[in-house]
Write a protein that binds this DNA or RNA. Structure first.
Lengths: 103, 103
DNA sequence: TGATGATATAGATGTTCATCAATATGTTTA
DNA sequence: TAAACATATTGATGAACATCTATATCATCA
């Protein structure tokens, strides 16, 4: 999966806030949480949690799933993997993998 | 190599600005550049380049090497690799690698 | 030593953004 | 339908930050 520059930049920014990164990490660990669950783990207001989840969703690193009055969020592993790959590519960390195969 | 939380956060922020990320990418591609070289690639003022390079150096993703009146910068691959590894760990992207070996 | 060139610092400015209180919207249940 | 609950939105505020101009520092060279 290939990320557009715009998407890459947005994900970088989404990860740059420690609070938001912690929320994403919690989602990665637990698999799926609703807003209240997330809020229970961190000492921030409900609107702030909602804001961070929205940013993460806008960057497509999490997906939103509405179930009745609840709203579940889970990580999008495909996008996260694509982000890490692109980051490695840009930073030249995949030189060995990208090198032409010896024969 | 293990990154402290503080270092991880700082690197995330260093990568969050597209201009700074582009500078880092250029350094990764070319190996080693001085300030003027970097400035020649991007349409920003000399103090801005100096500022970005300082941020990257503070985050330890690049290293500074003074040679006379010039100042060369090159990426620190060890730190960058450690960052990507820690990111993967936090995002749960290394589940397969981390799994206990089958026997 | 004085001029030129490379880089860093200081200070200012406008923008982005994390956060909150208040409120709105939508959903469930008594 | 009214109350209670979950989430989203609005608007405000203060902090962080990217960028610039001006200037300082330091090294080289004529």
């Amino acid at each position: 999966m290939k990320l557009a520059t715009e998407d890459f930049d947005r994900i970088s920014k989404a990860l740059a806030d420690p609070q938001r990164c912690a929320i994403l990490q919690k989602l990665a660990m637990t698999g799926k949480l609703n807003c209240s669950d997330v809020g229970a783990f961190f000492d921030v207001s409900q609107p702030t949690v909602s804001h961070h989840l929205k940013e993460l969703a806008t960057a497509h690193v999490v997906e939103k799933e509405k179930q009745g009055q609840f709203c579940f969020y889970h990580v999008n592993n495909e996008v996260l993997s694509a982000y890490v790959s692109e980051l490695q590519r840009r930073l030249g960390l995949n030189a060995i993998l990208a090198a032409p195969r010896a024969r």
